[in-house]
Structure formats: structure tokens, C-alpha cells
């Protein structure tokens, strides 16, 4: 018995030691950069010629900078449109696919999923050409087929950001559709049958049954795409990177601003400050997401 207890104790200690090593390594590679970033955000440095501690000057300077504030507003717009329109369109697509069956269902899901597995850089470059003012594919179709004045898409401050958001929504529609569709498949048919007996229409099914029962998936997607919207960089850079931030800063976003401050202007302190602000916003979103998941609903 004592031998067994000793053996167990040795094994437990070994497992504990390994766990501590892994945990220490993880803490070192994730906590240390955050702490260093906090320190850098309170400093003025280009990492080459000097390092001066300036307390919160970088943060104060950022909140007085109209370009930074514009970037913050643009990220919020991105988040609101991406989440609302993105999830809305995916709900409709998923509902329509849910009505099909057999090979058609699989084919539709596969087709919608194709852009999801395509490189965002490649898609951004292609859409940049599609959006080219006056002579791009979209402009040509709108002017020649519909006989309308085509919008300026990426060339106008009014439409540049929405054009990028639209492309981003299109790209991930497949992923959202697959997730929502899987959720729809889980809803028992008996609920719809029971509601039919009570005289419920298709629209009532959709709004009163489907959407409420898809709440966990919707919240999950809202959380994920909110986080993506706050971190967006690739399509902004690829489609409106020359000059950076698009026409009159209309596509300026926080991560782009961070990139410009740190790598164009070598103001790493300011770049770090923007990174901290993005971190705090993302952290707040994650907390919200966790709380939402912990919520229980009864129907």
C-alpha cells in the first residue's frame, strides 16, 4: 500500500512539474509581451536611438488625434455593419439552404464555403480590381446594364469603408451559413409541426422559433465577428493601402493606425498604446461573450 501511494505521489509530482513548466512557458510568451507592451506604451521610443518614459502622454496624444478618433469610429461602424448585416444575410441563406435537401444542399454549402477557404489577400486584390472606379467590373455592369451612375466604391470617402465591409461580409458568409445551418438542423421538427397546428406562418416560424433557438450560435458569431471587426487590417491594407487609410482617412482603422505609428513613423510607444487600447476593447468584448454564454434561456 505504501509503495502504491509513493508511486502515485511520484507520478503526480511529475505531472505537476511538467504542467508548471508548460504553464510557465505559456505565461512567459504571452504575459511578458503584454507587460513589455504596457511599458512601451508609456514610453517614447523608436527602439534604436533612445527610450524615454513619458507616463500617459501617448494615450493623451492619441485621444486628441483626429485620425485616431476617426479610426476608432470606423472600427465601430465596421463592427455594427459586419455583425448585423453579416449575420442577417447568413441567417437568410442558411434558412433557404435548410429548405433544400440531398445533393443540392451539399452543393450550396460547398459553394458558399469556397470564399472562406480562399486567401483574404487574394480576395482583397481581386475585389480592388472589381471596385475600380468607372472602368472596374462592377462600375461597368452598373453603367452599361442598369444604365445608372456607378458609385465610386474605394475612391470615395463615402463608400470606401462600406465597400470593404461588403467584401468581408461576402467572404465569410459561407462560414456563418454553415454554423447557423448546423444549428437549424438541430431544431426538432416537432416544434414546427406543433406551431403549424396553431396556424403559424413560415415567417412566424422563422422569427418566433428559428431565431430564438439559434441564439447561442448567433451570440457566438456576433462575438467572433465583433472581435474580427476590431482587429481588421488585411482588406483595409490591400484595398486602400495607397495612401494608407484610404481617401481622406475614410478606411483608417485602429490596427492600421498602429501599423503606421509603429512601422512607418517608428513611434513604437504610440503604436504600443494603440495596441493596448485594442487589447482592452477586445478583452471587454470577450467578457461580454463569456457572460452571454453563461446565460440560460427558457422558452
Amino acid at each position: 500500500m505504501n509503495t502504491l501511494l509513493r508511486k502515485r505521489s511520484t507520478v503526480s509530482s511529475f505531472i505537476l512539474a511538467v504542467s508548471i513548466l508548460i504553464l510557465s512557458y505559456y505565461i512567459f510568451i504571452s504575459i511578458w509581451p503584454i507587460l513589455f507592451n504596457v511599458y512601451m506604451s508609456l514610453s517614447k521610443t523608436d527602439l534604436m536611438t533612445g527610450w524615454t518614459f513619458v507616463w500617459f502622454k501617448n494615450y493623451i496624444s492619441l485621444f486628441k488625434d483626429p485620425i485616431f478618433l476617426k479610426a476608432l469610429v470606423n472600427n465601430i461602424i465596421y463592427l455594427v455593419v459586419m455583425v448585423s448585416v453579416g449575420i442577417g444575410t447568413s441567417l437568410i441563406t442558411a434558412a433557404l439552404i435548410h429548405k433544400t435537401s440531398g445533393f443540392a444542399k451539399k452543393a450550396y454549402l460547398a459553394l458558399f464555403f469556397l470564399p472562406v477557404v480562399t486567401s483574404l489577400v487574394a480576395i482583397s486584390l481581386i475585389w480592388k480590381l472589381l471596385y475600380y472606379p468607372n472602368v472596374g467590373v462592377f462600375a461597368s455592369i452598373i453603367s452599361s446594364v442598369f444604365q445608372l451612375n456607378p458609385p465610386l466604391f474605394l475612391a470615395s470617402p463615402k463608400t470606401a469603408l462600406l465597400s470593404i465591409i461588403f467584401m468581408d461580409i461576402w467572404k465569410d458568409t459561407g462560414l456563418r451559413t454553415v454554423i447557423l445551418h448546423a444549428g437549424m438542423e438541430e431544431i426538432p421538427e416537432s416544434i414546427y409541426d406543433a406551431s403549424k397546428i396553431d396556424g403559424a406562418s413560415t415567417l412566424t416560424h422563422f422569427f418566433k422559433i428559428t431565431i430564438p433557438l439559434l441564439r447561442p450560435q448567433i451570440i457566438f458569431l456576433a462575438a467572433v465577428y465583433s472581435i474580427n471587426a476590431l482587429r481588421v487590417f488585411t482588406p483595409i491594407y490591400m484595398m486602400t493601402g495607397n495612401p494608407p487609410g484610404g481617401p481622406a482617412h475614410s478606411t483608417q482603422v485602429l490596427v492600421m493606425r498602429m501599423y503606421q505609428e509603429a512601422f512607418y513613423s517608428t513611434h513604437f510607444g504610440k503604436g504600443a498604446a494603440i495596441a493596448m487600447i485594442v487589447f482592452v476593447l477586445l478583452f471587454a468584448l470577450v467578457i461580454l461573450e463569456v457572460k452571454s454564454f453563461q446565460q440560460k434561456w427558457e422558452y
Binding site: 504553464l23 510557465s24 505565461i27 511578458w32 513589455f36 511599458y39
Partner: peptide, 17 residues
Amino acid sequence: VLIVALASSLSLIGCQK
């Protein structure tokens, strides 16, 4: 472990300075 990690981080920041 957390204290060790924090101490290491702070000492590395100190080294940087």
C-alpha cells in the same frame, strides 16, 4: 509560478532600461 513569471518580466524590463 505567476510570481516567478511576473518577476522575470519585470527584471527583463529592468534589463532593457
